[in-house]
Design a protein around this nucleic acid. Structure first.
Lengths: 415, 415
DNA sequence: AGTATTTTTTCGGGGCTCGAAAAAATGGGG
DNA sequence: CCCCATTTTTTCGAGCCCCGAAAAAATACT
């Protein structure tokens, strides 16, 4: 209950809801929209008529498949792909990619590029990001004016308002306000999103049955990241993107973590930690800079074959993840988990110790019912998440604009 | 964006907001309400006229103090104490209390009672709760029909819908649907709330400057509990009340906890754990049933005097709490903390080790800026929280009723 | 071709909020 | 003591928005 509902907000919200219903359902008829939104047929008729007139929706002589029903056939409504476009920029270790996506969600252009993020100076890193975006704008096939939003995703910690990267493992640079930089350069609203949060957003669109209101996406890669959806909303910290599962302390004073602290979950379960344990280098050994995906796959294969230090390394990773998850479950209760990233492909080596550890925690009372799913490739998820994030912004802020909900003075009611 | 906004909802929401503004401000004029809610003067005039007509608000020839301004004097609006009443029931270890509170928030009747919760059979425990409530209803001074809501608070885990106690340290009984039991018996809507959540609600009303959108209330008592407010809303788990800071694992395989597991924060920081360490009983010693508050105060006094095992026990408690809080901060970022309960009075003994531990965690980057406040007495807070909870329900559901927001089919937008 | 069925649009009614103007209530000054 | 300036509150007409019912449209079935 932040602030009074003005009369104009009403139409704005209902417009946004119709758009959202279409984006979700794909090609719903007006009647279907009325059913899912709870609004009357007349209202849906009026709003969709407006939206079609504005070029946001199109009538798509739908359901050619279904002609077996009597009565006037339904007219499917769909998003007009040309209504707008958005751009996604994903920056990860030594890798930068950009994509242009139409309003209906189809990729219409993309470019990928290798670069040495770890050693690049600040200006060069920013420059590369701007350059790759600029090249898209110079593409004669692309209608520049149609790009309505840029969503950038990065491995690392961002601020809770999606404006800046605060810290990232892919570069020694800190506090780069990418969102502002992109906005200043191109004059288009932009956001800076955390990679794991975007994974969660994408999973929700991909499989809304499994990933609905409460679930967890965990990135098992060089580091350990997490995206959390609780009560249907993306969870962020009070200042940062939050959800740093990888840096919860598993063993006080324990193994040396990449972050400089000791005993973090990541110091047992990150690729570098699994590598370090498999090579029996000791817990104080400086984390290696990067272990290739191929090396990790070879390690996993070896661990499956022989019961040696490699298998033990995965066991320790599972234990650390299990206690970390168990501590998380103590706070939020158990929820479905998606394991993403190269080590998710080795989840068979991780799972036994993980479940054993969870069973020793408060969240483990129903440990057998906690379900895990795996997805080895994180980059497509991150891009999809950024795309949906940007498109949803266009849906809500551009195509359903209105008196902005000012920060409430009354404040939400907590009692 | 759960479901379409019907036209009738509009007035309902704005009514609720006016009531909320009055409850918050105490005696605001119509003009003030218009300012805080952002609604127009005409709308506020119409709504408050309705509310006065219905006996919910009263005009209170306000501000007799301020007659120095020119112009028509403001008329203060205040809650009509007789508009309704609510009842709070607080069940804690060996102690049961009930209070009747008028619509303006004043206590108009109360009763307290000692009882042996640990050994009582299920029916007797329920019976005592019903009996103490029934006696309030038989009070000839009380207008029975005015009681519109009962909020019961209990030490222990409740379900996320505030219907049942799932588990509690004060009784071996589990899964008692107190909310349903009270509703069935008295025909009045009831909820079953977690004690620490109610502490958080009360703190927010007591000191909204310090405890606004993000803060943590920690109960340091026989066990360790937590109430969490994030982004202005009470945080609960997906199934239970959640927030079990006390049962996050501090040291895998460590000290024996009351819950039967090993290494929980509580197994180092609960009263019984401090006692056990102070008496050098070993970490495997069975947790004692109850340590009196007087014993704990004596222990703290001794620890302040001599650098012996007592002081070390508090140090260990601080360390466990510090790592627990640090892990929490890794997820949500730092936030102001209120320490409540008998051991909050010994926070001077706990704080150094706590800060040292936090500094070793991801959340500890700004550990010096994390502020702690202490409040030794939890029971008044729990009762106040229950009262506000119940009153807010009356504000929103009874005095601003309307088409219930059905569970949305469309679902909230996460992207 | 006519009828049944289903979807979509149209139309009138009722509510709600808003802005502007009027009314109400008080202090200050001549 | 009266009148004006000032501030708060109410009144009133206009403009939107949503809803329900009925009409219109579009197709399958007979």
């Amino acid at each position: 209950m932040s602030v009074g509902i003005r009369h104009d907000d009403l139409r704005r919200r209902n417009r946004a809801m119709v758009i959202s219903a279409v984006r979700r359902a794909g090609q719903p008829s007006r009647t279907e929209i009325a059913a899912t939104t709870g609004l009357s047929h007349s209202t849906i008729s009026a709003i969709s008529s407006d939206l079609i007139g504005e070029g946001i929706l199109t009538e798509s002589k739908a359901s050619e498949t279904v002609s077996l029903k009597r009565g006037r056939p339904q007219v499917g409504l769909s998003l007009n792909p040309e209504a707008a476009a958005v751009m996604t920029v994903v920056l990860s270790l030594n890798f930068l990619s950009v994509a242009v996506i139409d309003y209906a969600g189809q990729v219409i252009a993309e470019e990928q590029r290798r670069l040495d993020t770890l050693t690049m100076p600040r200006d060069e890193l920013i420059g590369e990001c701007l350059a790759i975006v600029r090249r898209r704008f110079e593409d004669p096939d692309l209608n520049v004016h149609s790009v309505a939003r840029i969503a950038m995703g990065i491995q690392g910690i961002t601020d809770s308002h999606s404006r800046a990267m605060l810290w990232s493992p892919i570069t020694p640079q800190t506090d780069i306000a990418f969102a502002d930089i992109l906005e200043d350069e191109f004059g288009i609203p932009a956001t800076m999103e955390n990679d794991c949060n975007m994974m969660a957003v994408a999973l929700r669109w991909r499989d809304p049955d499994r990933y609905r209101d409460d679930f967890i996406a965990i990135l098992l890669s060089h580091g350990i990241g997490m995206g959390l959806v609780l009560k249907g909303e993306l969870f962020t910290g009070t200042h940062s993107s939050g959800g740093e599962l990888g840096h919860m302390i598993h063993r006080p004073g324990g193994a040396l973590c990449r972050c400089g602290r000791r005993g973090c979950v990541e110091a047992y379960a990150g690729n570098y930690a699994i590598w370090r344990n498999a090579k029996q280098m000791g817990e104080d050994a400086e984390p290696v800079a990067d272990v290739s995906d191929a090396d990790m796959r070879a390690l996993a294969a070896l661990a499956r074959e022989v019961d040696g230090p490699e298998r033990e390394a995965y066991r320790k990773a599972g234990e650390a993840l299990g206690f970390g998850l168990g501590n998380l479950f103590a706070l939020i209760d158990p929820a479905p988990v998606a394991m993403v990233g190269v080590s998710a492909a080795a989840f068979d080596l991780i799972e036994p110790a993980l479940r054993e550890a969870i069973a020793q925690t408060a969240g483990g009372q129903h440990s057998k019912s906690i379900s895990f799913d795996t997805e080895p490739n994180e980059l497509p998820l991150i891009r999809e998440g950024c795309a949906m994030r940007a498109l949803t912004f266009v849906d809500q802020e551009i195509f359903a604009p209105g008196a902005q909900a000012k920060p409430g003075i009354v404040g939400k009611s907590v009692a």
